[in-house]
Design a protein around this nucleic acid. Structure first.
Lengths: 223, 223
DNA sequence: GTCTATAAACTGATAGAC
DNA sequence: GTCTATCAGTTTATAGAC
């Protein structure tokens, strides 16, 4: 999260007051790219549009990122790295009801606060994950196996009902990320432009209650 | 489902044995288009690739469907019409546990048997549903309100726990369609090329159990 | 490091012979 | 109704002046 480094104030060749360090320009390009990729997919995204949103000429974009593919790879890598560091509360020692409730709530909050990266990732996976290399089958798979082992421990200890932990995780991912990925559908069906923060809280509560009760757990009172 | 009409055997100008009626050619193009749109999205799909898979020259595709947009619209319409006719078992008179179990099972089976249309639709919604016109906000919204009314009736009658029926439907959609839309991720995480029919049955059972128990219902024995 | 101009390749759509 | 050839517009990526 907090890694602004020491941004060197370089000589400003182009004029203007904006931050011109390499790091900050790359960040601007990556943010612009993320939103364009989310809206149009990899194929539909154009480097011209990304450059426009980043506020730079298209040629500069290709100076910082050699190809459209390189840029997309770095966007994906950033998203994936963020995601691998969630669910830290799912540990053998934790209370299952509390840990799962915390995870579900955090995922709903992430869907509300950062829907765009979720959509980029969803788009990639729907199309068969052609740019994700070995991530799904190695890093993510190991991550799931580790968490599944914890949940199996809970089950063996009689703390919760017997379920397949991997499919439970898929269900949690689906039920929470749908509020980011399918926001257009949810908004339209509910007849609102977007959900209020209070509605998101109610959603988190309901999803948590259903999944916890479904696992034979008693939902904790929302803090 | 069963509507082969009477396919007129027209004069065969191009040679070859294949069916050449207008209806059958359009069907071939629509099927090819569906798979290409699912793999690459609207923007990434090319009319050249669709024509190649349909086994016709590109110019013929534009003879049968004026524009790429027309073709996409017809693909979407077909998907949407299929979907509006599911969940027929969710009625006021039905037993909640049985009706919901039936709906969830049917949705999982649909994800297994027809993942491609699901992906086309998911892709469309993720990108903000720019080609869906008023469908989400009118037809689908009415559909959801009707089903929500039924479920509210069940709740009022004390047959199930109090939940928001609309978000319950979103959860069912997400938990089932994820097996079509995110198949690449699920396969990779589980370390298999694709799930067996038996695994799909186990998934249907687990999703059903969690959601029904989560709603305070007792899952029926799988028939 | 920045920017304008442009090359090189691709894509949707059509013309026109058969 | 079918097919080849091709146009017009877009898009990725680069060359080269500053």
């Amino acid at each position: 999260m907090a890694n602004n480094d020491a941004i060197p104030v370089e000589p400003d060749h182009g004029g203007g007051i904006r931050q011109r360090s390499r790091a900050s320009i790359e960040r601007r390009i990556l943010d612009a790219a993320e939103s364009v990729f989310a809206e149009a997919g990899f194929n539909g995204a154009t480097t011209a549009e990304i450059a426009r949103r980043a506020g730079i000429p298209k040629a500069n974009l290709h100076y910082y990122f050699k190809t459209k593919d390189d840029l997309y790879q770095q966007v994906l890598t950033g998203i994936v790295n963020t995601w691998l560091h969630t669910a830290d509360e799912i540990t053998a020692e934790a209370d299952p009801a509390h840990a799962l409730a915390h995870y579900i709530t955090a995922k709903i909050e992430l869907a509300r606060e950062q829907p765009i990266p979720s959509r980029v990732f969803a788009n990639e996976v729907i199309h068969g994950a052609p740019h994700l290399g070995t991530y799904l089958g190695s890093e993510l798979r190991s991550w799931v196996e580790a968490k599944a082992k914890v949940i199996r421990g809970w089950i063996t200890a009689g703390k919760m009902r017997e379920v397949d932990p991997r499919h439970l995780l898929f269900m949690i991912w689906a039920s929470t990320q749908t509020y980011a990925d399918f926001a257009a559908q949810i908004s339209a069906v509910l007849g609102r432009d977007q959900l209020s923060q209070q509605e998101y809280k109610a959603v988190a509560r309901q999803v948590t209650e259903i999944i916890l009760r479904g696992c034979g757990l008693t939902p904790p009172n929302p803090s």
